[in-house]
Computed example of a mutant assay.
Amino acid sequence: MSRSGQSHILAIGGGSFRPSRRHNQIEASALLRYGLDLTGQDRPKLGLVATAMGDAADWVLKMYGAFSGWDVEVSHLTVFPMPNVPDPRAWILEQDMIYVSGGSVANLMALWRLHGLDEAFEEAWRSGVVLSGQSAGALCWHVGGNTDSFGPELRVWAEGMALLPYSCGVHYNAEPQRRPLLQESVASGELPGGYAADEGVGLHYVGTDFIQAVSVEAGAYAYRVENEGAGRVKEFRIEPRLLTP
């Protein structure tokens, strides 16, 4: 294996960043500290990917600022108007952890596949690079979930990388369409059973096994959603481990 000796994915439902006391800035939450600790490195290399946000320069700069004072080596990968590094695959494999921001997961996957980044991320995962991300950056590693990539009305989406053979629910307690649509799509068989996360909760997988949920919000939960057959679904609440701020 590699740095951490195992293949980790940290899929975050929401809460990767918090508003900062500095004007118009953000701060990284303990969820990202948890992910960085999984690398096993004293000064991990953190790669930021904002494809789902159209590589918005202001957002990339905010993410850099969010790690101010952290003992990390931060860099980023963009594809607009062309890749910003000579060899994106090499850049991905050099990182200890990748963080993928939210935005449009449908656009993200289309561009990753166009540039061959999906294959590079899979190679990195298998070599021990920690893969992480929020919302679109959580859905992408799974079979799919539901998304507002096509408009404000959520739609079922099943075009993820499927490194994890599950569906994924994000913003589960914050957006009222999320829970019923995930349950309906699992019950109908459009999506496989899977896991969901409230705001402030991360889903930690080792290999393809769900290990635990972690949270920066008291009273927030993760969930297992299973198809019971005959068009029925069952949801089990999972108590996360509360992280120290």
Score class of each variant (00 low, 15 high):
149 S>L: 10
100 V>I: 15
159 E>S: 15
44 P>F: 06
226 E>I: 15
109 M>A: 02
6 Q>N: 13
60 V>W: 03
37 D>W: 07
155 R>W: 02
20 S>A: 02
210 F>G: 07
197 A>P: 00
97 M>K: 02
183 Q>I: 03
63 M>P: 06
107 N>I: 15
128 G>R: 12
199 E>K: 07
93 L>Y: 02
78 T>W: 08
232 R>Q: 11
244 T>V: 09
92 I>K: 04
37 D>I: 05
237 R>F: 01
75 S>M: 09
28 A>D: 06
43 R>S: 12
69 G>F: 04
5 G>V: 15
101 S>M: 10
80 F>I: 13
197 A>F: 14
51 T>M: 15
209 D>K: 03
97 M>P: 00
108 L>H: 12
134 Q>H: 10
108 L>T: 10
212 Q>W: 00
241 R>H: 07
42 D>C: 13
154 L>W: 15
23 H>A: 08
179 R>M: 07
176 P>R: 11
3 R>K: 13
136 A>E: 09
4 S>K: 14
155 R>A: 06
75 S>G: 07
32 L>M: 09
216 V>N: 05
49 V>Q: 08
88 P>E: 00
124 A>T: 04
5 G>Y: 08
168 C>H: 05
107 N>S: 15
14 G>N: 02
95 Q>D: 08
94 E>G: 15
110 A>P: 02
173 N>L: 06
69 G>D: 11
100 V>W: 12
44 P>T: 09
70 W>F: 13
226 E>F: 04
37 D>R: 10
11 A>K: 09
93 L>C: 01
229 G>S: 02
2 S>R: 11
138 A>K: 02
181 L>F: 08
204 H>Y: 13
3 R>V: 15
229 G>R: 14
60 V>I: 13
32 L>D: 07
105 V>R: 03
115 H>D: 14
46 L>R: 05
179 R>E: 14
2 S>C: 07
157 W>T: 00
111 L>N: 07
153 E>T: 13
160 G>I: 03
213 A>W: 01
208 T>N: 06
42 D>H: 14
167 S>M: 04
151 G>M: 01
217 E>N: 15
137 G>W: 00
75 S>V: 09
63 M>F: 06
189 G>W: 03
45 K>A: 01
143 V>F: 10
80 F>P: 04
114 L>W: 08
199 E>G: 03
21 R>I: 08
16 S>R: 11
142 H>Q: 08
191 L>P: 09
173 N>C: 10
202 G>M: 11
168 C>D: 00
27 E>K: 12
155 R>C: 09
195 Y>F: 12
214 V>M: 06
136 A>L: 03
146 N>I: 14
2 S>I: 10
183 Q>R: 11
144 G>L: 01
127 S>V: 00
221 Y>A: 14
124 A>I: 01
17 F>P: 01
162 A>W: 11
131 L>W: 00
220 A>K: 11
20 S>L: 08
63 M>I: 04
91 W>A: 14
96 D>I: 00
204 H>W: 13
220 A>L: 11
171 H>T: 01
202 G>E: 12
